[in-house]
Design a protein around this nucleic acid. Structure first.
Length: 558
RNA sequence: GCGCCCGUAGCUCAGUUGGAUAGAGCGCCGGGCUUCGAACCCGUAGGCCGCAGGUUCGAAUCCUGCCGGGCGCGCCA
């Protein structure tokens, strides 16, 4: 509908120029918006303001001229007027909204799906936890964000690949092996030393027991035993991570391994090509990349004097490889404590001419957990932290995902377990689900009276004349473009707010009927009930689709 | 010190990328179930959008400078 309006305005603009009423100027980049206040109609444009300065005329006058040149007014509009200092406000006919509802119901589960991102291949890398310990709350937030973003991008026509990068090459995994081995030795020798910076969590002791059952550690040299502990520990942690992600309804297409990059010689290969281009040099016994030429604060070491690569080296190789795989864009979801690396990795990409905007990094801020009104302090190093699994066991997947997606990823999140655990009305999570369940209940009631939403309701829908009904349709009409906007801005949390508002509009509508039988969905005259059931069907569908994109279930009963 | 992010109702946060009278949830106070689900709805109170300038028809939104908070600035990962 907005597009139709835009086309009409563009045409009117041309007509004004051809008729000589306007001097020729380029069409401004104007906006058609839905005014917050319905007093200003259903749509409004600022076009006149944007032409005022170049034409040196008053916006109000320009608005009148444009209005005069708009064609086909009677068909689509109930009212078009110049308002304020120069807005043009449009009020759409009810019949147009009825037609739109018909389309929503007809499109069903595909309503909102689009081709906006057609031809765009996007790689989204998220979570990417070290396989050295269980996933924690921060990973949960990243998982919820990444997964929902991917779902929405796919729905808007992008080709999406979801990837988990396994940091399994460096000292972390070796340390894991040492930690496991030490725990195993400590069963016989209480004083056996534990590695400095080792992993302290109880899961390490569990791993030690499992691994001791599988391997005869006692027959091995310590070095060999540590190596085997590291390998097996990595495998087991990875399995657990995959399990946890699965039960959090997060799936990955690719599990990319850092150690594979080394194993297949990719790191050397890529560094060689950079060296050939003069982007790499040796100094003080180390190997450096000229990142400072491309926006980094200084050059960075990629190979240390001891001959080991830094993690940065493999990161560079990994991202170059991503680029070669032919994606139009790469999105990384990182913890906010990594923001210092953004500039660095982008600079590294630029050494090979890769546009820095090709890579987009979304930072997620800290998650703080509250229980009993107090913050639960966490320390990963000491192995003291709440795992994602524990959180999910306590509050459920739906609630956890909803809360993680209830704020911009860029702002810190306080997760109040007590609030989210409550099975009562204070829990924000149920609000949207409840609306869905309620509609399902209405349909059960309708069915018991032999009523349903007819598949081809065209003429019926004109029975919908209540302001609440038209408001619902108008609000639903914004769903497709919302998803496109979210895809562009990479802000999935906006969907959470949208659904909450849609649910709210429905609850208000529904409650009208508790006081006034004339306004009930089921119970009045047959055609009216059918029309209202169509409306309810549309709302139910949008709620369902929206929740599905959030990875949240839409229950029929609660 | 340098860089990034953030300052919006008592609390937690939205704010359609520059639009018209700044919103929601929680909390406070008051009201609504004899038939579609009260996990809901309705109403009241609550604001110098951190401060000061600037840009323009128009600023919570963009620019500059302060103030306050978080994070990052390794041949660690």
């Amino acid at each position: 509908m907005k597009e139709a309006l835009r086309a009409m305005l563009n045409q009117a603009f041309e007509r004004c120029i051809e008729s000589g009423e306007f001097n020729r100027i380029p069409l401004p980049d104007y906006v058609i918006e839905v005014p917050g206040n319905s007093h200003y109609g259903h749509f409004a444009t600022n076009l006149p303001f944007l032409m005022a300065s170049s034409l040196r005329r008053r916006p109000g006058d320009l608005a009148s001229v444009i209005l005069k040149n708009l064609g086909g007014l009677e068909d689509m509009f109930e009212k078009v007027e110049v308002a304020g200092p120069g807005f043009i406000n449009f009020t759409i006919r009810g019949s147009e909204w009825h037609r739109l509802l018909g389309r929503i119901v007809a499109e069903g589960k595909d309503y909102g799906r689009s081709l906006a991102g057609a031809g765009r291949r996007i790689l989204v890398e998220f979570v990417s936890a070290n396989p050295t310990g269980p996933l924690h709350l921060g990973h949960g937030r990243g998982a919820a964000l990444g997964d929902t973003l991917c779902r929405i991008l796919s729905f808007t026509g992008h080709e999406v690949v979801r990837e988990f990068y396994i940091n399994d090459a460096g000292v972390q995994v070796r340390l894991l092996g040492e930690s496991i081995y030490s725990r195993w030795r400590q069963r016989g020798d209480r004083d056996y030393p534990f590695p400095e910076n080792g992993y302290h969590g109880d899961y390490v002791t569990d791993l030690a027991e499992q691994i001791a059952d599988q391997l005869s550690l006692e027959t091995m040299e310590p070095d060999e035993a540590v190596r085997r502990c590291a390998l097996l520990g990595r495998e087991k942690m990875l399995e657990e991570i995959k399990r946890d992600m699965g039960s959090f309804r997060v799936a990955f297409d690719v599990w990319a391994s850092e150690s594979d990059l080394y194993a297949c010689g990719l790191i050397e290969k890529i560094l060689e090509s950079l060296r050939a281009k003069g982007q790499i040099y040796e100094e003080e016994g180390a190997t450096w990349i000229r990142s400072s030429l491309y926006g980094d604060d200084k050059d960075r070491v990629i190979k240390k004097t001891d001959g080991e690569y830094t993690y940065f080296a493999s990161d560079i190789a990994y991202h170059f490889e991503k680029f070669k795989r032919g994606f139009s864009k790469a999105v990384n979801i990182w913890g906010a404590d990594h923001h210092g690396y953004i500039q660095r990795i982008k600079a590294a990409l630029k050494t090979d001419g890769i546009d820095e905007n090709w890579l987009e990094v979304l930072l997620i801020q800290l998650v703080r957990l509250f229980k009993g009104g107090e913050e639960v302090k966490m320390s990963k190093r000491a192995g003291l932290y709440v795992t994602l699994k524990e959180l999910v066991e306590e509050v459920g997947v739906d609630a956890a995902r909803f809360v993680f997606l209830s704020k911009n990823h860029d702002s810190p999140l306080d997760f109040d377990v007590d609030l989210v655990k409550r099975q009562d009305s204070d829990n924000p999570v149920y609000y949207v689900q409840y609306a869905h369940a309620r509609i399902c209940s209405v349909f059960r009631k309708a069915a018991s009276e032999g009523l349903s939403a007819p598949p081809n309701p065209a003429e019926l829908l004109e029975r919908l004349v209540l302001e609440e009904e038209l408001t619902l349709i108008r609000f639903m009409s914004q769903f497709p473009e919302l998803l496109v906007d979210i895809s562009k801005a990479m802000e999935p949390h906006r969907l959470t707010y949208y659904l909450t508002e849609l649910a709210s509009l429905f609850h208000k509508y529904f409650n009208q009927g508790t006081k006034d039988p004339e306004k009930r969905i089921v119970g009045g005259e047959k055609t009216l009930s059918q029309a209202r059931l169509c409306l309810a069907q549309g709302v139910r569908q949008v709620l369902f689709t929206g929740l599905d994109l959030l990875g949240i279930q839409a229950p029929e009963k609660m």
